[in-house]
Amino acid sequence: MDYQYPIDHTWSTEETVQAIQFFQAVEEAYEKGIKRDEFMSAYRQFKVIVPGKAEEKKLCGEFEQASGYSPYQVTKKAKELPDEAVLRIK
């Protein structure tokens, strides 16, 4: 990993950690797969920190540009899968 996670410097340490956990869950979906429930939990925590669509789109776009991993595609697929499924993006 040769990139930085997009973070807002006004976030608390706990909020920053939760946002990073979401981006790591996106990475995991691409690299080895992640349980859908685990990903959705990370996404829900991220949405508490970033409730607005515009800010979410901005941060996820920055992450995708830096990493090549699309949080949008992972989230979209996660919403289509049953609870027990393993989420994997190829």
Rank of each mutant, 00 (worst) to 15 (best):
S67T: 02
F46P: 12
A66C: 02
K47W: 08
G68H: 07
E27I: 10
V48N: 12
A25E: 05
A29Y: 02
K53Q: 14
S70C: 00
K57G: 01
R36G: 06
V26H: 02
K32H: 12
V48L: 12
V48C: 13
V50T: 09
E14C: 11
Q18D: 12
S70E: 06
T16S: 05
G68V: 08
V26I: 03
V48G: 11
E62V: 10
L59T: 01
G68T: 11
S41R: 13
I20M: 04
F22H: 08
E15G: 12
A54I: 14
V48M: 10
E31N: 14
P71N: 01
E14A: 10
V50Q: 03
M40Y: 05
K53W: 12
Q21M: 15
K35W: 02
G33I: 13
W11F: 06
Q45T: 13
W11L: 06
E15D: 13
K47L: 10
Q45W: 15
I20L: 06
E38V: 14
S12I: 06
F23C: 05
A42W: 02
I49A: 03
G61K: 06
G33P: 03
C60T: 11
V17T: 15
R36Q: 12
Q45S: 15
Q45H: 13
V26N: 04
Y69F: 00
T16H: 09
E31F: 00
Y30E: 03
E27Q: 08
V17H: 07
Q18N: 11
E27P: 02
F39M: 02
F46S: 07
M40K: 15
I34S: 06
T13E: 15
W11R: 06
I49G: 06
E56P: 10
A66K: 04
E64G: 06
L59G: 08
I34D: 00
Q45P: 07
E27R: 08
K53E: 12
K58S: 07
V50F: 02
Q24R: 15
Y69P: 07
K58M: 09
A54Q: 15
T13Q: 15
E56T: 09
A42Q: 10
I20W: 01
S12W: 02
P71W: 01
E31G: 12
K47M: 07
K47Q: 13
Q24I: 08
G52D: 14
F23M: 06
Y30A: 01
F46L: 08
T13W: 00
V26E: 05
F39T: 00
I20C: 10
F63S: 01
A19Y: 05
Y72T: 14
P71G: 05
Q18W: 10
D37R: 14
K53P: 05
A19Q: 07
E14W: 14
I34K: 11
F63Q: 01
M40S: 05
V26D: 02
A42V: 12
P71Y: 02
R36P: 07
V17A: 09
V26Y: 01
V48F: 08
A42H: 11
T13L: 09
L59K: 08
E56H: 13
K35F: 08
F46A: 10
F63E: 03
A25N: 04
G52F: 03
L59S: 03
A29G: 03
E15I: 07
F39I: 03
E55H: 10
F39K: 04
